[in-house]
Design a protein around this nucleic acid. Structure first.
Lengths: 229, 229
DNA sequence: CGAGCGATTGAAAAGACTCAACCACCGTGG
DNA sequence: CCACGGTGGTTGAGTCTTTTCAATCGCTCG
């Protein structure tokens, strides 16, 4: 989309919304939300929020990709999740009435809306369907993270890379995976050099194709076998 | 407590409940819950539920400890969490209307109550305070797991052991940590042999004392420094 | 008292990391 | 227009942590 069009985005017309957590809310609520929300254009590598700061609302990705990460010792990033269009981010810390435990930053040019904390909470209060969706969403994420932990603990870097590529394929859909080697390494949980070497092996084995930053998964089936389990 | 007393446990009189997610519910609701809940005695190493099965309600630990784990490739366990008295378990999968993504098993003799799915859901529906607590709880767990992932990805086994011991110290309170070497290894995310060797080092460095299965943390401060970050 | 499981130790092998150097591409400013 | 600097990507070599496998020990329970 044209980067100057973002002011015209309304929740009512937003195709992303129709598919996401915020589907199934009433027209009145929609209108109310539209009046209160803000929508901005973000350049690549712009920060949405930082670990340790206090949430003032939730972000709704209209277009683009956002990495959710945590800094470990020495400041090394661990990417926990890569959010795509349609996803709501930053509501967990808001519920916990706590600081953000993770940071969020765009991976590419994005348009992202912002809904104030109070507006969102009152929406939640009034809307049992939304509540249930949020609960369900959080449960799913909890489950995903349990798997993530298990993978980290038990799988080799090679297996984790295979797993991550399959995950990212879902996130990027038609388009090729487009991440810096460092970000990919920080997602897999390994050193950049190791990642590069393994990626080269995968390429030689015909599992993926690469073109500079872009990665095309060419044999998902074999990758899946590689993951094991 | 005497293992035959468990039939007399009521939510109304339960000291655990007063501290946990289920505090702040009305007397009527309490009574209703008491009429519907069941309470059982569990031996050590008894299963509460298995990954892949469907939830039929939530468990409330009155006394004892429960490991929440996931099986990875080759069937190796990864312990995600160790729940203690007062904790509610198994509600995530219930919200997600999905199979359990993890399994739960007692680590010691325990008394655990069970609340039917429908009863719990209607309680939730009627009780905004409870709802908010659950949201908050889940948010906190999401945050814990992000940290867990980051630790797994970036810290050495030695650091993870230090971290785990500190966590377990909280769980066990006054009492010494009491886990098999294998369970501890599966929590830290390492091989049993490696765990034993590191534990020996910790003992030699005066960080912990051990007595068969029991582990006493003797220098929490130094352990914390070891964890780094 | 014997079986069996959990705990422990040793030695060797493997996987992954670190460090250092080098390359390639890109935008900038002279 | 080209040299320059910088960033991100790649490669090599050596090191170290951690795993694996095998063997032994020791306690507990029947």
């Amino acid at each position: 989309m044209n980067k100057n069009d973002f002011r015209s985005i309304t929740c009512a017309s937003c195709l992303q919304r129709k598919e996401n957590l915020l589907s199934g809310i009433s027209d009145t609520e929609l209108m109310q939300m539209d009046n209160h929300k803000g929508c901005s254009f973000y350049k690549k590598n712009q920060s949405l929020f930082l670990e340790g700061s206090f949430p003032r609302g939730v972000f709704c990705i209209h277009h683009g990709k956002v990495k959710i990460y945590k800094r470990g010792e020495e400041g090394k990033e661990q990417i926990i999740h890569i959010a795509k269009e349609g996803e709501l981010i930053g509501f967990r810390a808001m519920f916990a009435e706590n600081k953000y435990s993770v940071s969020a930053e765009t991976l590419e040019e994005s348009t992202i809306c912002f809904i104030q904390k109070d507006d969102f909470l009152s929406l939640l209060d009034a809307n049992p369907t939304l509540r249930n969706r949020i609960l369900k969403e959080m449960s799913q994420e909890l489950s995903d993270r349990a798997e993530f932990i298990t993978n980290m603990a038990q799988k080799s870097v090679r297996q984790r890379l295979a797993f991550s590529l399959l995950l990212l394929k879902e996130v990027y859909g038609e388009k090729p995976i487009n991440l810096s080697r460092e970000d990919l390494a920080n997602f897999v949980g390994t050193a950049t050099e190791t990642l590069i070497r393994l990626l080269k092996e995968f390429k030689e084995e015909g599992l993926v194709e690469t073109n500079v930053r872009k990665i095309y998964v060419s044999d998902a089936k074999r990758l899946l076998m590689l993951v094991g389990n």
